[in-house]
Nucleic acid binder design. Structure first.
Length: 821
RNA sequence: GCCCGGGUGGCGGAAUGGCAGACGCGGCGGACUCAAAAUCCGCUACUUGAAAGGGUGUGCGGGUUCGAGUCCCGCCCCGGGCACCA
C-alpha cells in the first residue's frame, strides 16, 4: 500500500525536528570551514509577505546546500524591531510599541518557521532587547569619545509626517520623505551626526574590489560623489580683511569667471551687502528660507527672482579685474564652500543666469566650429586665458592649480556629495542616545557601567508630534555623571539604521555579555559570505554598514582588519501585484499562510525558485496560482517516484528498448545533472537548477518504462532527492527517510563523476552555408576527416551541395560541420 | 540630461559565438474510468504544404564572422537609479 504524503504533517514534523535536534545550530569552535549566509533582518511587520518568502527561501537554499557540502554554516535571524510603525500605532490608540512589536515579531517568526527556513535561533537578535540597546549605546559612547559622533547645529531635513529629522539618505530626490512621502522641510536645529565623511575615500575606493551588483556599486559611487578641483580665494574689493573662497572643478576656466555667487545662507552675505542692495538681498533670503528643497531645486521658474546683487565686487586673481558678487538660491550652502565662481561660457546654469542679469560672458575654451552656442563644457584649446592659452582642459587644470598654490590664491581640493550621517530622531521607539546635558560639564556621555539607558514604559502617546520622552520627568531629569549636579537627559533616539549597521557582527557571538563584538568569533565568521536582500537598501543600510564595520575596527570594538561586512551581495527582485511593488504600506500583500495550508511550504518555495531568475522582478498574476499548482504537482510526482514505485511500474514496458544503452543514458543524465545543479546553486541559478531536476525526473520516469534496472533507477532517485533537498527540504527529507531511514540534510552533497557524465554519442549538426541541413548521431571522439566524410555521404547534403565542391569546410567535430560554397 | 538593467512562442522563462525556444504554465489530442477528478502518454514559434519538405523568426537599421539571441556601431521602447553638487 502506497504511503500517502501528508504535506502539513510532514512539513511541521520536520520543522520541529530541525529545531529540536539543533540541526542548524553552529558553535563558534566548529571545525568545519565557516560559511556565513545572511538575509537582511526584517522590520517585524506581522505576517510574512511574498518578498520575505523569496528572500528567506534563497538564503535557506544556500544554507542547506553549503551545509551538505561540508561547511560549518552560520545562519542567524533577527528583527529590526525599532521603528515608526509601532509608535504610530500607539498614537492611534493601539498597543504600547513594545507589546505591538512583540506581537508582530511572533507573527512574522511563525511564518518564517512555517516556511521551513532554518536558523540557529539561539542567536536571535531583536534591536529593542535591553542587551542590544546596551551595546548600541556602548558603541555610541566610543564613537563619541573618538570624535566620530558629534553634535552640530545647522539646516536639517524635517519630515512633518514622521515628526522627526531625517538623514540626507532618507530624503528622495524629489524632496520627499522616503518613508511617509511627505514633503521634507528645512529646519535649523542642533542634531547628532556620525562622521561617515571621514571614510568617504575608503568607502569609495573599496567598492572596486567588491563582488556586488554593479548597479549597487554605481549608486554608492554617485552617492559619495567625489569630485576633484580647487578652492580659490577671491579678495573682496575695498575690504582688506575680507575674501570669498569658492570651490570649482574647473579652475582652468578661471579667466572666464565674470561674477561670484554666494548661497543665500552664506555667512559673509551680510558683510558684502551694501546698504543700497539690502532690500533686494533680504527679499531673496526670505524667499529661499521658506522654500522647500523641491521648489528650490526646481529648474522651472524665473531666474530673475532667484538672484540678487550684493553691491560688492571681488577681484578675480587671474585677471585682477573686479567682478560683481551675487547671491542666488541655486547655490547650495551645504556643498563646497557655499560659494561659486561663475563661468557662464562653460557652465549651463551660469550661462542662463548671466544672460538674464546681463553679465559678461568670456569664452575660455574654444568650442568646435559647428557648436550651436550657449555654454560649452567639452574639451578644446584654451583662449582668453593668459598663461593657459593653447592648452587642453587636463593640462590647463593642473597648471592653474600650480599657479594658485604658488601665488597663495588657492589649493587643490576634493569635495564629496556625501554628508555626515544625521542619526538623532525625535521619536520614542528607538535606542536612546546615551548622553546627558549638564550646565557645568556640557555634553557628557553616560559611563558604560550605567548603561543601558532604557525607554520608560509608562509614557503616554499623544498625537502632538513630540517625543513622549520630553514629557517624562523621571527620564528627563537626571544627575551629571561627572559632577553629580542636576542634568538633563538627551531625549532623542537613534536612527534605526544604527541598529542594523552592526547586527551582522553581533550574530557571530550574541552570547557574549561583555563586549559588543567578540573578536575571535568575528574573525572566524566575518565577512558575510552571502548577503541577500532587496535593492531598496542599496545606499542607506549597505553604506552605513560598510562605514560601521570600518569605524568599529578603528576604535577597537571589532577586529580592524575586517573592513568590508559583506563579501558577496545578492539583491533579489521585487514582487509586483497589479504593476506595483508588493508592500504592506500599499496593502497589496499576498500572504504565504494560505499556501502553507493548501500546497505546503515546499511548493511555494519551489515556485519562487523556479518562476524566473531570482534577480528579476516577478509579477504576481493570473498565472501564478497555476504555476504554484504545477510545482505542487511536480513534488507529488517525485514522491510517487521515490516512495511508491509500483505506481510507475504499472505503466511499464510499452517502450522497452536496449536496456544497457538506456542505463548508460540515465547514468550520464544523473551525473550531468549533478554538475549543472551544483554550479547553478553556487551562482544563484535557482530557476535552471529546478529545471534540471525536473528534466532528470522525466528521465528517470522514462528509464523506469524502458527496462532500466532497478538499482540504477534507485541510485538516480537518491541523487535527485539530494539535489532537491536544499530547495524543497521537507519532502526530500521525508522521502529519503522513507527509503533509507537516514536524515537527508546530514547527507553529503553528490559529486559528479565527470567520466560518467561524458557523452559517447552526440548529435552532429551539418550545415551548408551556415544553414542546418542535416543532423546525425556520431561518436564523440570523431575526428575532422571522419566527420567530413560522414557528412558528405549524406544524401541531403549531397543534394544541398548540388554537385559543387565546398570552397571551405569548417569542421568542429563532434558538434558541427559547415560546408561553405 | 547622465548612469545602470532589460526587450526571445499564447504566458513565466532556457541557450561557454555553433541545432533558438530547455523546464514549466496554458491549450489540443489520446490512455485509464460507467463517469469525473487524479494520473500517465503524445503534440504545441509563425507560415506554406495533403505529406515529405520549404520559407521566416530573438525590438529596429547597419556591421564583424563560415556561422550572431549572444560581439561591434547607430536608433526605438520599457524598468530602475541619479540629477542646480559648481
Amino acid at each position: 500500500m502506497a504511503k500517502h504524503y501528508d504535506v502539513q504533517a510532514a512539513e511541521t514534523r520536520w520543522q520541529a525536528r530541525w529545531i529540536d535536534e539543533g540541526t542548524y545550530q553552529i558553535e563558534n569552535d566548529d571545525p568545519r570551514p565557516p560559511y556565513y549566509v545572511l538575509s537582511m533582518y526584517p522590520y517585524p511587520s506581522g505576517q510574512a509577505h511574498q518578498g520575505h518568502v523569496r528572500n528567506y527561501t534563497f538564503g535557506d537554499v544556500l544554507v542547506r546546500f553549503r551545509t551538505m557540502q561540508g561547511f560549518g554554516v552560520l545562519s542567524p535571524f533577527g528583527f529590526d524591531s525599532f521603528g515608526l510603525p509601532a509608535e504610530n500605532a500607539a498614537i492611534k490608540g493601539g498597543d504600547h510599541p513594545l507589546a505591538y512589536t512583540e506581537a508582530r515579531i511572533a507573527e512574522l517568526k511563525a511564518s518564517v518557521l512555517r516556511l521551513g527556513a532554518v536558523y540557529d535561533w539561539r542567536r536571535e537578535i531583536r534591536s529593542h532587547d535591553p542587551e542590544y540597546i546596551r551595546f548600541n549605546q556602548i558603541i555610541f559612547t566610543h564613537l563619541f569619545k573618538n570624535d566620530l559622533a558629534y553634535r552640530k547645529g545647522g539646516i536639517v531635513n524635517w519630515c512633518p509626517g514622521c515628526q522627526t529629522v531625517l538623514a540626507n539618505e532618507q530624503v528622495e530626490s524629489d524632496g520627499t520623505c522616503e518613508r511617509s512621502h511627505d514633503l521634507v522641510e528645512r529646519r535649523s536645529l542642533e542634531q547628532w551626526f556620525l562622521r561617515i565623511t571621514n571614510y568617504a575615500d575608503e568607502l569609495l575606493d573599496a567598492l572596486d574590489d567588491l563582488d556586488w551588483p554593479d548597479r549597487v556599486k554605481t549608486m554608492q559611487r554617485n552617492w559619495i560623489g567625489r569630485s576633484e578641483g580647487a578652492r580659490i580665494t577671491f579678495p573682496v574689493e575695498g575690504a582688506k580683511d575680507l575674501s570669498i573662497e569658492v570651490y570649482t572643478t574647473r579652475p582652468d576656466t578661471s579667466f572666464g569667471a565674470t561674477y561670484l555667487v554666494l548661497a543665500p545662507e552664506h555667512p559673509l552675505v551680510d558683510r558684502v551687502t551694501t546698504s543700497l542692495q539690502q532690500g533686494e538681498v533680504e527679499r531673496l533670503r526670505a524667499l529661499a528660507a521658506q522654500q522647500s528643497d523641491i521648489e528650490r531645486q526646481s529648474t522651472e521658474g524665473a531666474l530673475e527672482k532667484r538672484g540678487a546683487f550684493t553691491g560688492s565686487y571681488a577681484i578675480n586673481p587671474f585677471t585682477k579685474s573686479p567682478i560683481p558678487i551675487y547671491i542666488a538660491d541655486y547655490v547650495l550652502a551645504s556643498y563646497g564652500t557655499g560659494a561659486i565662481m561663475a563661468v557662464p561660457s562653460e557652465d549651463d546654469r551660469d550661462f542662463a543666469f548671466a544672460t538674464i542679469y546681463d553679465l559678461p560672458i568670456i569664452r575660455t575654451v574654444a568650442p568646435p566650429e559647428e557648436f550651436a552656442g550657449g555654454a560649452y563644457a567639452g574639451d578644446g584649446l584654451h583662449i582668453n586665458s593668459g598663461f593657459l592659452d593653447g592648452l587642453r582642459i587636463a593640462e590647463a587644470k593642473s597648471r592653474a592649480i600650480d599657479w594658485l598654490e604658488s601665488e597663495g590664491f588657492g589649493e587643490r581640493s576634493v569635495q564629496y556629495r556625501l554628508r555626515d550621517w544625521l542619526i538623532s530622531r525625535q521619536r520614542y521607539w528607538g535606542c536612546p542616545i546615551p548622553v546627558v546635558y549638564c550646565d557645568r560639564d556640557g555634553i557628557v556621555a553616560v559611563p558604560e557601567e550605567q548603561l543601558p539607558i532604557l525607554l520608560p514604559q509608562d509614557v503616554e502617546f499623544l498625537p502632538t508630534g513630540e517625543s513622549p520622552l520630553k514629557h517624562h520627568p523621571d527620564f528627563l531629569h537626571t544627575t551629571c555623571p561627572t559632577c553629580g549636579g542636576p542634568a538633563r537627559r538627551e531625549t532623542d533616539t537613534m536612527d534605526t539604521f544604527v541598529d542594523s549597521s552592526w547586527y551582522f557582527l553581533r550574530f557571530t557571538d550574541p552570547f557574549n555579555t561583555v563586549v559588543p563584538v567578540n573578536f575571535d568569533a568575528a574573525r572566524h565568521f566575518m565577512p558575510v559570505d552571502q548577503y541577500i536582500g532587496g535593492i531598496t537598501h542599496a545606499i542607506m543600510h549597505l553604506l552605513y554598514s560598510r562605514f560601521f564595520t570600518r569605524a568599529l575596527g578603528d576604535i577597537g570594538l571589532s577586529p580592524s582588519e575586517i573592513r568590508e561586512p559583506f563579501s558577496q551581495l545578492f539583491c533579489q527582485g521585487m514582487i509586483r501585484l497589479g504593476g506595483k511593488a508588493m508592500s504592506k504600506s500599499r496593502g497589496n500583500v499576498i500572504s504565504p499562510n494560505d499556501y502553507f495550508k493548501s500546497v505546503g511550504a515546499d511548493a511555494l518555495r519551489l515556485f519562487h525558485l523556479f518562476v524566473g531568475p531570482p534577480i528579476d522582478d516577478i509579477d504576481w498574476g493570473d498565472q501564478t496560482n497555476e504555476i504554484i499548482d504545477g510545482c505542487s504537482r511536480y513534488l507529488r510526482r517525485v514522491w510517487r517516484l521515490a516512495v511508491d514505485p509500483e505506481s510507475t511500474d504499472d505503466a511499464v514496458v510499452s517502450d522497452a528498448k536496449d536496456p544497457a544503452a538506456e542505463t548508460a543514458l540515465l547514468l550520464r543524465n544523473v551525473h550531468q545533472t549533478i554538475a549543472k545543479v551544483t554550479d547553478d546553486l553556487a551562482r544563484y541559478g535557482f530557476n535552471t537548477a529546478v529545471a534540471e531536476c525536473m528534466a532528470l525526473t522525466n528521465a528517470i520516469t522514462r528509464a523506469a518504462r524502458t527496462g532500466v534496472d532497478r538499482s540504477t533507477i534507485d541510485e538516480a532517485i537518491d541523487v535527485l532527492l539530494r539535489l532537491l533537498a536544499p530547495m524543497v527540504p521537507h519532502i526530500a527529507a521525508e522521502a529519503f527517510e522513507e527509503r533509507h531511514g537516514r536524515h537527508i540534510h546530514k547527507e553529503p552533497w553528490p559529486v559528479a563523476d565527470l567520466a560518467l557524465a561524458k557523452d559517447d554519442q552526440v548529435v552532429m549538426v551539418i550545415q551548408v552555408n551556415g544553414k542546418v541541413r542535416d543532423r546525425i548521431e556520431v561518436d564523440a571522439t570523431i575526428d575532422e576527416s571522419e566527420a567530413t566524410q560522414l557528412a558528405l555521404s549524406r544524401e541531403i547534403i549531397a543534394a544541398a551541395l548540388e554537385g559543387a565542391t565546398p570552397s571551405r569546410i569548417i569542421a568542429r567535430p563532434p558538434k558541427l560541420i559547415n560546408f561553405v560554397l
